[in-house]
């Protein structure tokens, strides 16, 4: 791969030619804000927050989708860029509930972080807001449409796993929503609670319900562990507070594996002192389950017991 040299905010950087501007900027430690961009997902250019000015280009360009070119001169925080970013953030906040005080996502929410960075505030208005549709059907995931910014990351990550593809867009314009299987719930859809969507959601629209109310993220100690269920080892995070291990959440799928509920529950069981009851989806219902059934080791345990009993005899 050929390398190209470009200038970003006055600093020169040399990167492979297939890099996008946002990737090149990262090399320089320049953090271009973006809500819909994720290096592991298809680039869609939807949030428009990563717009930058490129010398010689009349229009603002999204740095996630624009490839670097030799000699390119990019400015990431010009007056024009900042105005657009502030307006975009204001538009998002205007549709978003003012719930940062109790939102589980606070402290990790990208919308919150960028609003702070660009000094954009909630304001009162009597215009439209996103509908207060909350899917509480799952013991694992809470989906709150009123907080959704429609970045589509959840849809993209879900569609990366061929036999899942549960999430999709529905409706259009301001009424666009993220739905499961043509507008079903977590319970009635074919969602397997792998929590890939929760991992990528930049706001509080999709949150891990088993974390809720346990700790604020800034109070927690977070340790990354590998899943031991299969050889691939997806990453999970163990959250503890004052030495007490409180919760486990999905962090990242490993190469070739998609993240799964069994892995997460097993990791909970291995690391937490007092994990919550597990649930299984039976038919279209989540039902409280025993741990042996939840991580489907009932048969194995029975067999082990039998074998060991025989040996003892």
């Amino acid at each position: 791969m050929k390398n190209v040299t470009l200038t970003i905010d006055g600093q020169k950087v040399t990167v492979p030619e297939n890099y996008s501007i946002i990737q090149a900027a990262k090399e320089l430690g320049i953090d271009i804000p973006a809500l819909c961009y994720d290096p592991n997902l298809e680039v869609v250019g939807a949030c428009r927050l990563c717009l930058v000015e490129i010398e010689g280009s009349r229009k603002l360009e999204t740095s996630c989708s624009t490839k670097v070119r030799e000699g390119m001169v990019v400015n990431t925080e010009t007056e024009k860029v900042v105005k657009a970013r502030k307006d975009i953030l204001q538009l998002l906040l205007d549709s978003h509930p003012n719930d940062c005080l109790t939102c589980q996502k606070a402290g990790e929410c990208l919308l919150q972080a960028y609003a702070y960075r660009y000094d954009v505030k909630f304001r009162e208005h009597d215009g439209a807001m996103r509908p207060k549709l909350i899917d509480t059907s799952s013991p694992y995931i809470l989906k709150d449409d009123s907080k959704c910014i429609l970045c589509g990351k959840c849809v993209r990550t879900c569609s990366q796993v061929d036999d899942r593809q549960v999430l999709s867009f529905a409706g259009r314009g301001y009424d666009t929503r993220i739905v499961l299987d043509l507008d079903k719930t977590f319970e009635t859809s074919k969602c397997v609670s792998c929590n890939r969507c929760v991992v990528v959601c930049p706001v509080g629209a999709l949150v891990d319900k088993r974390l809720m109310g346990k700790t604020r993220i800034w109070d927690a100690e977070v340790k990354t562990v590998d899943c031991k269920v299969c050889a691939y080892g997806c990453e999970f995070e163990v959250l503890s507070k004052k030495g007490k291990k409180l919760a486990v959440r999905a962090k990242a799928p490993s190469n070739g594996r998609p993240l799964c509920l069994k892995g997460r529950l097993t990791t909970e069981l291995m690391h937490l002192d007092n994990p919550d009851k597990p649930y299984r989806k039976i038919g279209n219902k989540f039902v409280e389950s025993s741990w042996t059934k939840a991580i489907s080791i009932a048969d194995i345990i029975e067999k082990i017991n039998k074998l060991e009993n025989n040996e003892e005899k």
């Binding site: 869609v44 250019g45 939807a46 949030c47 428009r48 927050l49 657009a84 307006d87 975009i88 538009l91 998002l92 205007d94 549709s95 910014i149 429609l150 589509g152 867009f169 409706g171 259009r172 314009g173 301001y174 009424d175 666009t176």
Partner: peptide
């Protein structure tokens, strides 16, 4: 409904 400026 894809991009923020137009949708919102």
């Amino acid at each position: 409904g894809k991009c923020v400026p137009c949708r919102e």
